[in-house]
Amino acid sequence: MTTSPTRSPRLLLIATVFLVVAGVVLLTMPHAPSGPASSVAPRATDSTSVPSAAAPSGRSPQTGAPASATAATATAEPIGASALPPHGEGIAGDAAIQKSLENAWPADLSAADEHTLLAAGRGILRADATGIGRTTWPALFGDPDQAISPAFATARFRIQAAIARSDGSPDKAVVHLVWAGTDRGGTYTDRRITDWYFTRTSTKGATTWTPQPRT
């Protein structure tokens, strides 16, 4: 028995109509999102976190530390670093330098000892830099007629700040000085640092602080 050739076009037509209908149905159906909804909306920023860029130079945020503690470290240190006045500020900036020294090294000497040491340290520095008053400390500067010529002009010499603190022992101290001056070549430089060391001796109840020669 042979298949009628007239049925083939009818089957093709039915198949074509079925495919068209199926395609229309697929096109009209709503598409589901390709990913979870949370991936579309931006994540809210955590207000308690501290970016690593806020950490002080050369130091990373503390691992496991509370965010508030890390933030305090990140903001307090740059403020302290910027407390010093810029170079060339002049007398107006000296108070800030003095305060910075006092904050960095809390006082640990009696008021009387500190006063004595500061007066001596200032006088020795002035004598060393400008030549004025070297005869007061012959053990340090020797014969004034053979002393080295002063390297700084008296007119532009200025002690910007000074503190006196103990130096590892009740009978040892150091005077830390910050100063400015113009050298013999005419170059002005401020925030120079010089330390003078002292030892304490007691004779018959009298206390004397003796400056030590530079080594």
Rank of each mutant, 00 (worst) to 15 (best):
M1N: 04
P5K: 07
R10L: 14
V20D: 14
A22N: 13
V24Y: 08
V25E: 06
V25C: 10
T28Q: 12
H31S: 03
A32N: 05
A32L: 13
P33E: 05
G35S: 09
A37H: 00
S38P: 03
S39Q: 09
V40N: 09
P42G: 00
A44Q: 04
T45F: 09
T48V: 15
T48E: 13
A54E: 11
A55W: 08
P56T: 03
G58N: 04
R59Y: 07
S60A: 11
T63C: 05
G64C: 05
A65K: 10
A67Y: 07
A67W: 07
S68Q: 09
A69E: 15
T70Y: 06
T70G: 12
A71K: 12
A76H: 09
P78E: 06
P78F: 10
G80V: 15
G80A: 13
G80C: 10
A81W: 15
A81I: 15
S82H: 13
A83N: 06
P86H: 07
P86N: 11
H87S: 12
D94T: 04
A96P: 00
I97G: 14
K99S: 15
E102M: 14
W105G: 15
W105K: 09
A111I: 15
A111R: 13
A112E: 05
D113N: 01
D113M: 03
D113F: 06
D113K: 13
E114I: 03
L117Q: 04
L117A: 00
L118F: 10
L118T: 08
A119L: 15
R122D: 08
A127G: 02
A129Q: 00
G131S: 02
G131V: 02
G133N: 01
G133Q: 05
R134H: 00
T135L: 09
T135F: 09
P138W: 04
F141T: 07
D145I: 12
Q146C: 08
A147Q: 07
A147E: 01
I148W: 07
F152W: 07
F157L: 03
R158H: 07
Q160S: 00
Q160P: 01
Q160L: 01
I163W: 02
S166T: 06
S166D: 06
D167A: 04
G168T: 04
P170E: 05
D171S: 10
K172D: 03
K172Y: 11
A173I: 00
A173V: 04
A173G: 02
V174M: 11
V175T: 05
V175R: 00
H176V: 10
H176N: 07
L177A: 04
L177N: 10
V178R: 06
W179C: 01
W179A: 02
G181P: 02
T182F: 02
D183I: 05
R184Q: 12
Y188Q: 05
R191P: 05
R191D: 10
R200G: 01
R200P: 06
T203F: 01
K204N: 08
T207N: 11
W209Q: 14
R214Y: 07
